[in-house]
Simulated assay, not measured.
Amino acid sequence: MKAGRGRLVLRQRDLGFGLIDRSLVNSEIIAGFECGLVHGGRHDLLQTTRHMPSGRMRDHLRIARNHGVFTARDGLVPGHDAVERLRIAQDEGVQTIWDLSHYHRIDDPGAYVRAIVRQAQAVCGAERLWLCPVNEPSLYPMLAGMSREHAVNMAVVMAEEARHLHPSVGILVNDPITGVGDRQFAATDAIVSRTFVDVIGVNYYPHTARTSLSKVLLKTWRRYGKPIMVSETSWHDGHSVHHRRYPGLNKGSWLRHVQDEVKIANDRGVEVIGICWYPMVDCPPWHAPRSRNRWSHGLIRQDLSVDPALSAELMAMMPHAAAA
């Protein structure tokens, strides 16, 4: 059926909120694992969250899987062993969408993606390789010290090269889209106009939202006519703006709120393939990588215990709970 304004998408209804195409994602809720290089390049979030092959990566994936989450966003970013990361995700049975640059500067993006594709084929054969070439290109001037145009060019080069080399590549592009003005879509427009994109990602948080998520999803659908992912959202227990804007909510009720907004968009013909809770693991403040404190925005705590409100919500969504 041709994509376009007001298209009715016929999909399998699953768990009550989405119309899900199982050829794209394996679970409606997606576990997002921080893989960014932040605080002027001095804070590697993969290291400080211990989401490493030699650390707790397997533990994190197993906890997510035990909550019915079988798809993840993770990173094959510079400075980390891509082969080991690919192998662990495959061993744990978690479908993964891999960020290649999450505020990282890559001097030769073509060479970098060629190496990643070779490594992915060595570990995973010809199975579909999902990539997010550049996370949030509109924020690169502030967080990575390069222009938005540079970040867009990097994304296009890596997407094109990956499609040329791999028999089955899926491309996610994502950016903060928190309103419906044209400026919100500038970076995504620039990428979509130059290369084929499979899924449009919308990053939407309580403290930056300018309008309702359902309106954002509808505007994004009408603009691109492509499947959409809520590619980042979460609730931060310690964020005063979250509590001021949405009094009385917690992580579990924020997830329900997002699901309700997705359902509204679904009912108007928008194809939303999943919601990524980002991040899944509490992390130190970006500006304080050595801090013993953690931002409380994930399911998984520093000691591998879980947030009770979000855990309960995810467990209630699992098929055995629905059947009961």
Results as ranks from 00 to 15, higher is better:
Tyr205Lys: 05
Tyr112Asn: 00
Asp198Gln: 01
Ile20Ala: 08
Gly6Tyr: 14
Pro167Thr: 02
His166Asn: 09
Ile275Asp: 05
Cys276Met: 10
Trp221Leu: 03
Asn250Leu: 06
His320Ile: 14
Cys35Pro: 03
Gly170Arg: 08
His320Gly: 05
Ala265Pro: 14
Pro206Ser: 10
Ser193His: 14
Gly179Gln: 03
Leu76Val: 08
Asn174Thr: 15
Tyr103Asp: 00
Leu10Lys: 07
Asn174Pro: 02
Ser54Val: 11
Cys124Trp: 13
Glu136Arg: 00
Pro206Glu: 01
Val272Ser: 06
Arg292Val: 10
Ser305Pro: 07
Ile273Asp: 11
Ile200Asn: 07
Ile88Lys: 05
Cys132Asn: 14
Gly41Phe: 12
Val199His: 12
Ile30Trp: 03
Asn174Trp: 12
Val270Thr: 07
Gln12Ala: 09
Phe196Arg: 14
Leu304Ala: 11
Gly238Asn: 12
Val113Trp: 00
Gly18Arg: 10
Ala321Thr: 08
Gly40Leu: 02
Leu8Lys: 10
Gly252Thr: 08
Gly4Gln: 07
Val270Arg: 01
His80Trp: 00
Arg105Tyr: 10
His297Phe: 10
Gly41Asp: 06
Val169Cys: 09
Gln259Arg: 11
Gly145Ile: 04
His102Lys: 06
Asp99Phe: 15
Thr49Gly: 04
Gly252Lys: 04
Arg65Asn: 03
Asp267Glu: 15
Val241Cys: 00
Phe185Cys: 05
Arg194Tyr: 02
His51Val: 05
Ala82Ser: 13
Ile200Phe: 13
Val258Lys: 00
Arg11Leu: 05
Val25Asp: 01
Thr188Glu: 03
Glu160Ser: 04
His104Tyr: 14
Phe196Cys: 01
Asp108Tyr: 03
Val94Cys: 10
Leu143His: 09
Leu255Phe: 06
His287Lys: 05
Lys215Gln: 13
Tyr204Lys: 08
His297Arg: 03
Gly298Gln: 07
Phe17Trp: 15
Ser147Tyr: 03
Cys276Gly: 06
Arg292Ile: 08
Asn135Cys: 06
Lys263Thr: 02
Val77Cys: 04
Ile106Val: 15
Gly110Glu: 08
Leu15His: 09
Gly32Phe: 04
Ser253Gln: 12
Arg244Ile: 03
Gly179Thr: 02
Ala115Phe: 00
Pro137Ser: 01
Arg11Asn: 08
Ser305Val: 05
Gly32Thr: 06
Arg58Leu: 13
Arg65Trp: 03
Arg87Ile: 05
Ala111Pro: 09
Arg42Ile: 01
Cys283Leu: 12
Gly145Pro: 03
Tyr224Lys: 09
Ile116Lys: 03
Gly110Asp: 10
Ala288Ser: 04
Pro227Lys: 04
Tyr246Met: 12
Val272Gly: 06
Asn174Asp: 15
Leu129Cys: 06
Asn135Arg: 09
Leu304Lys: 05
Glu34Ile: 01
Arg256Glu: 13
